[in-house]
Amino acid sequence: MLLDGEDWQRVLHGFSRSAFRLETLPAYKVAGEAEEIEDFLNGNRIDPVTYTSGWTERLLAHRAAGRTVQRVHLVTRPLSDYLRYEFMYYEPHAKAGEDIRILDLTDRANPGLPDQDFWTFDDSTVVLMNYEPDGTQIDRVLVAGETDQYLEWQRIAVAESVPFADYVKAHGWQ
């Protein structure tokens, strides 16, 4: 089943315990980000201490309600301009309660994870995130049936990754 609009928002924000995202692409083409990326490339940065957004507000609400939000992003160095831009937002997102982790595959083999972005919610719902090669989103598909393989990929991704802050510190990007 395709998820869009209000249906997608209900799934994305209606979980009761946990949300997990596996990100596999070096860049995503998101409407409205082109100007922000250009600003970033020209040296403009957000203040991670004072930055707030709808997403940080939701993260704070999830954390206050005892819900967890976690993501693992697969990367290779050198990081794409998009990843460097996205990393700028990871710090305030982490401060708001998102457990962001990085799995750097530059000098190691992929531990068996798919080349497919997905979300899991409450260990029972899976949504595939389908993209064009350039990172333009095609659609979101609710997976019907068995979720065990996605939960195993989630387990591997978390076990093999490092916390975002540790990754940034290890690579001197503070």
Rank of each mutant, 00 (worst) to 15 (best):
M1I: 12
L2Q: 15
L3G: 05
D4V: 08
G5P: 04
G5N: 10
G5Y: 07
Q9G: 09
R10P: 04
V11W: 05
L12H: 13
L12C: 03
L12Q: 14
H13C: 02
H13T: 05
S16H: 09
R17L: 00
S18F: 04
A19F: 11
F20T: 05
R21H: 09
L22Q: 03
E23W: 00
T24K: 06
T24L: 00
P26C: 00
P26E: 07
A27G: 09
A27D: 11
K29H: 10
K29G: 10
A31L: 05
G32W: 07
G32P: 12
A34N: 08
E36G: 13
E38V: 04
D39H: 15
D39W: 10
F40T: 09
N44T: 14
R45V: 13
I46N: 01
D47N: 15
T50M: 03
G54Q: 13
G54K: 14
G54S: 15
W55I: 11
T56V: 01
T56R: 13
E57N: 14
L60F: 04
R63Q: 14
A64C: 06
A65P: 03
G66K: 06
G66C: 04
G66M: 06
G66W: 01
T68D: 07
T68S: 11
T68K: 12
Q70G: 02
Q70D: 01
R71D: 09
R71F: 03
V72I: 03
H73P: 01
H73L: 11
H73I: 13
H73M: 13
R77E: 10
R77Q: 13
R77P: 05
P78R: 05
S80G: 07
D81A: 12
L83S: 11
E86R: 03
E86Y: 05
E91M: 08
E91L: 12
H93I: 05
H93P: 08
K95N: 09
K95V: 11
A96N: 01
A96Q: 03
E98R: 04
I100T: 06
R101F: 08
I102T: 05
D104N: 06
D104L: 04
D104V: 07
L105Q: 03
T106M: 07
T106H: 12
D107H: 10
R108E: 01
N110S: 03
L113Q: 07
L113H: 02
P114Y: 03
P114W: 10
D117Q: 03
D117N: 00
F118I: 06
F118Y: 12
F118G: 05
T120G: 08
S124Q: 12
T125P: 06
V126N: 06
V127F: 02
Y131P: 11
G135H: 13
G135A: 05
D139F: 00
R140S: 08
V141G: 00
V143Y: 10
V143A: 10
G145C: 08
E146Q: 03
E146T: 14
D148K: 11
D148W: 06
Q149C: 11
Y150V: 08
L151Q: 02
E152Q: 09
E152G: 00
W153G: 01
Q154N: 05
Q154A: 00
I156G: 04
A157N: 01
S161W: 06
F164R: 12
F164L: 09
F164Y: 15
A165M: 08
D166V: 15
D166H: 15
Y167I: 04
Y167T: 02
K169T: 14
A170R: 14
H171K: 07
H171A: 01
G172S: 06
W173N: 11
Q174K: 13
Q174E: 09
